[in-house]
Nucleic acid binder design. Structure first.
Length: 583
RNA sequence: GGUGACGUAGCUCAGACGGUAGAGCAGGGGACUCAUAAGCCCUUGGUCACUGGUUCAAGUCCAGUCGUCACCA
């Protein structure tokens, strides 16, 4: 079968706070598992994302801390790189939105939509701070709620009665920055004419029933069918300025340029890897599948609004891009959005201290226990719950006891009794053949689940095979066989080792580090995957750090083991997975 | 207020097309000992949120109620 082209687009984390396990389980980890699977399948995979570095919350945080917005986002960007490298999220490129490349294409997006008449000008009433000479975002204004009279309602929503507000509705409004009283001024903005694209959006969503998640589809359809115009620009200084004269202080609404990051990061990836036209393959050629991995709060942006942008632009189409006049952008094939992971029944919240810090977690326990547990509670259909107790149990009684111990008990018998080499099997019994057949079939079933982005099912399937192998060992008991018939014991251990070899591949999208270690213990000299590294790229005035992936000498393949008898083990087997004891 | 999703054993979750509830972990018991006292076998747990309705038969379809969440106005 010809290799497929897969573009894995991952939600852009907003660079005003650290990542927590909810983000990881929601988007980054599923994307990585999916990407690794497709790499093993031999498919052409590019996985991109980056830090969302513009927008009001970053400006506010910078003001509060006496820093520049750039300093704030660069701090968190660096931590995102570190966190995801430690976790093994294998981006081909994780960049950010404050690059020349992103700005240039961002302005082009605006121009294209304007040329194609999907943007129009309209006036909007907004609160303006005279003391600071700028428009105030609604959330930075407070006042008395017109509905319930609560006197500390924010301009976007009243915390008391829960009603959503428009800042101009507030009675006695005041700035939350300096307490001054804002005035109502008219501001002229560009609006995105979504009604003009309704028909195309509805058509796009019409053939997704067989594979989109129900949590994503109905909701998106309803919105697409009734989509109203939305503001496309904002009064903002920290963002991408709109490329028109007399438009100072107007930037592209951050949401749209973050979405555009999927395209711009692909362009940057192509350029960095010295094949500047390669992005065209993924965005224009039709034999490509684009996946967007996101959390449930982002669904509409990724199932309707992003499609609207792509449909509205049609293509990049500027002089430097003139070859594309007859091309049209690809739209996402699937948007497997996840629900949330909660903690103690509450949402994660940095400000309330409800959080599990990922940097801390990987430093203490390593990536794989975290990846394993988060996959097992991945909120594919509904919200799930992080439990420290469960984290420990899953690690100790599943990952370690079922899988780590299976490898350990098999290889240590081979090490001690078979000259530290994979034994040469004799004739296979029915039981031997049955287990091997089961392990071979697993590549189909688990692969199917992975391809359909049913990641929890896929992991469960792999663990079931580990259990079957443990059962096989207990029934065959090579430690007994060896006393009377060493050759038969060698066959039994060969069968177990061969299935373990397959399992290390089947499990590798989920727990890549452990799988590499197993592979090494089995005596292989190569690796399943390539390497991740952080690197500085860009011209002098555009330097930035990115996370990259280099396939290099990776030899992993999604196919059953062909373990060679006589292969020397890679050293004395020792525990792969540490037991976790909570202090 | 609108749209949508969710509410199943102690915990985490499965349960197209309706036929009297399943898995893993935890808990209890057992035989073994190669293994990080891990693995294996057996086993105790459930008013399937609530109330009505359709049906010979409903976690499974319909209506309503309550609760949780996301997005939109």
């Amino acid at each position: 079968m010809a290799p497929e082209n897969i573009l894995v687009c991952v939600a852009w984390p907003y660079a005003n706070g650290d990542l927590h396990v909810g983000h990881v389980a929601g988007a980054y980890l599923p994307a990585d598992i999916f990407a690794r699977y497709h790499r093993l399948k031999g498919n052409r995979v590019v996985m991109v994302s980056g830090s969302d570095s513009h927008g009001t919350p970053i400006v506010v945080r910078a003001d509060k801390e006496g820093k520049t917005p750039r300093e704030v986002f660069e701090y968190f960007h660096a931590r995102f790189l570190e966190t995801q490298k430690n976790l093994g999220v294998s981006y081909d490129l994780f960049t950010h939105t404050d690059t020349q490349n992103h700005r240039r294409i961002g302005q082009q997006m605006f121009t294209r939509l304007l040329e194609n008449e999907y943007l129009y000008k309209a006036k909007q009433k907004q609160l303006y701070s005279e003391s600071q000479s700028k428009f105030l975002p609604d959330r930075l204004v407070e006042g008395t709620c017109p509905h319930c009279g609560y006197d500390k309602a924010r301009g976007d929503q009243c915390d008391n009665c829960g009603k959503l507000l428009d800042g101009t509705e507030l009675i006695n409004p005041r700035s939350r920055i300096d307490g001054s009283t804002p005035v109502v001024r008219e501001s002229e903005h560009y609006f995105f004419d979504l009604p003009a694209l309704r028909e195309k959006l509805v058509a796009y969503l019409s053939d997704k029933d067989s594979y989109w998640r129900s949590t994503v589809l109905d909701f998106s359809r309803n919105y697409a069918a009734h989509a109203e115009p939305r503001a496309f620009t904002r009064d903002l200084t920290w963002g991408i300025p709109i490329p028109l004269p007399d438009s100072e202080g107007k930037c592209i609404y951050v949401w749209y340029e973050a979405l555009l990051g999927y395209l711009t990061a692909t362009v940057e990836w192509a350029s960095i890897t010295g094949q500047p036209d390669e992005w065209r393959k993924f965005w224009y050629e039709k034999d490509v599948k684009i996946y967007n991995f996101i959390g449930k709060d982002n669904i509409l942006f990724h199932t309707v609004l992003w499609q609207a942008v792509l449909l509205g632009m049609e293509r990049l189409g500027q002089p430097w891009d003139g070859a594309d006049v007859d091309k049209v952008f690809n739209l996402p094939y699937d948007v497997p959005a996840n629900q949330y992971v909660n903690l103690g029944g509450q949402k994660f919240s940095k400000s309330l201290g409800v959080s599990v810090d990922v940097l801390d977690l990987t430093a203490k326990y390593g990536a794989d226990p975290v990846r394993y547990y988060l996959t097992s509670i991945m909120p594919e259909a509904k919200d799930s719950e992080w439990s420290w107790n469960d984290f420990v149990l899953r690690n100790n009684s599943e990952l370690l006891a079922k899988w780590g111990n299976l490898v350990q008990r098999t290889l240590s018998q081979i090490w001690k009794n078979f000259d530290q080499r994979i034994p040469t099997p004799g004739e296979l019994s029915e039981a031997d053949k049955a287990l091997i057949a089961q392990s071979e079939a697993a590549f189909e079933t688990i692969g199917g689940a992975l391809n359909a982005v049913h990641l929890r099912d896929a992991l469960t399937g792999a663990i079931e095979l580990a259990t079957a192998t443990n059962q096989y060992l207990d029934r065959e008991a090579p430690w007994k066989t060896i006393k009377a018939d060493k050759a038969r014991a060698g066959t039994q251990l060969y069968v177990a080792a061969r299935v373990i070899d397959s399992l290390s591949v089947l499990l590798s999208p989920f727990i890549p580090f452990t799988s590499e270690a197993v592979r090494k213990q089995l005596g292989y000299k190569d690796t399943l995957f390539g390497e991740q590294y952080i690197e500085q790229v860009g011209a002098t005035d555009d330097r930035h750090d990115v996370l990259r992936y280099n396939a290099g000498a990776a030899r992993g393949e999604w196919k059953p083991s062909n373990l060679q008898p006589g292969q020397p083990l890679g050293g004395e087997p020792k525990g792969l997975i540490a037991k976790i004891e909570l202090a």
